[in-house]
Amino acid sequence: MPPIIETRQLHHLYSAGTPFEHAALKEVDFSAQAGEYLAIIGRTGSGKSTLIQHLNGLLKPTSGQVLFEGEDIWSSKEHTRAVRFQVGLVFQYPEYQLFEETVYKDISFGPRNMGLDEGEIDRRVRQAARFVGLDEALLDKSPFDLSGGQKRRVAIAGVIAMEPKVLILDEPTAGLDPAGAAQILDNIRNYHLEQNATIILVSHSMEEVAREAGRLVVISEGTIPYSGTPSQVFAHGAQLERMGLGVPAMTRVFARLRAMGLDVPGGVYTIEQARDAVLAALARNGAGSGQPSARGEERWT
């Protein structure tokens, strides 16, 4: 199946022709399949923001191509604008772009720009609000009266309301408390499952991407050194560390346990997997029937 969105030899120079010129992306080949949930990881300044802004035509490549459903998104001005409705981009701290008097009007900004009729706009606004778990009663309120987490969800609803086939989110959980972050990730997963949409999540949290995404794309100094399933990517632990990224805490713990000669599986990156792996290991050693906690204490003292 051809990818829904891809870049070919994408190269981007900032401040071209001045002494400040530097390449943010170097001949990057990136692709995403329809219905895929993938995550982009990279440290600050690695080029990930530059990459995602190319995917919906906010930045123009210095050289190379960006294809959406097999067609160059820069083939015409109308096409570029049309692609922006198909490839929704949620920026970092999106709550700072809210501007309307009511939540309803703000969410409807995107669909209205698409030129849809009122009935369709109304349906989309309500559905988007439902996706991000916003109460109907909030729709008539001013977005500036909401809490930080609610504002963030309004802003995400503003992009979801365009019903993009590809939804890109730049650090959607930055600055939220764990409950708020978990809720946003739930909302995104729901949108992914119900609309069969492609999700591209940019994140710093290795735990988050390991739990949510089916495929990880590592970006470092404008290139993509690794891409694959979480276990494939986290197998390069030492190299990731050197890129300033690292692996999830649980993966590190289990790598150490294996190094100490304990019989535990690799490819563990979440707390839940760690719990299951530990229980399984204890059961294998015949400790599952007894009192694991008591035995544990005995062993460590």
Binding site: Q53, V90, F109
Partner: peptide
């Protein structure tokens, strides 16, 4: 620059 890009992403012209 940032807000402009964000609104462009929602189809602002």
């Amino acid at each position: 620059d940032k807000i402009m890009s964000a609104q462009r992403a929602r189809g602002a012209d």
